[in-house]
């Protein structure tokens, strides 16, 4: 199967990757090979195989609901590329309005 230039560019955009024409072509080719391989797997009879959601054979790993010490404000903000007082400062996103997707 092949991946169109538009599809590849859309994926790059979703991943916030800036690719030039050569890179787009190469990645489209690589992705197509990966998809071909996945399709090979999809062709195998999997009737008796449980869907796998994790490679480790462990379930139910919990912690108790107990508050632990946090970083200090200064530690938390130490690596911030930009800050203002007690806050991280970031470029404002305008096109989607207020708040996030969540």
């Amino acid at each position: 199967m092949s991946l169109s230039r538009e599809e590849t560019a859309r994926l790059a955009d979703l991943a916030r990757l800036s690719l030039n024409d050569d890179e787009l072509a190469r990645i489209a080719h690589d992705l197509a090979e990966i998809i071909d391989y996945m399709e090979k797997l999809a062709g195998i009879d999997r009737a008796d195989v449980e869907p796998l959601s994790h490679v480790l054979n462990t379930v139910n790993v919990y912690r108790d609901d107990r508050a632990e010490p946090s970083l200090s404000q200064e530690e938390a903000l130490a690596n911030a590329p930009d800050r203002q007082g007690e806050f991280f400062r970031v470029p404002r996103i305008i096109d989607t309005g207020e708040g996030s997707e969540a």
Partner: peptide, 8 residues
């Protein structure tokens, strides 16, 4: 106008 502040 083009900056926002974040509280984690």
């Amino acid at each position: 106008a083009n900056q926002s502040l974040l509280d984690f």
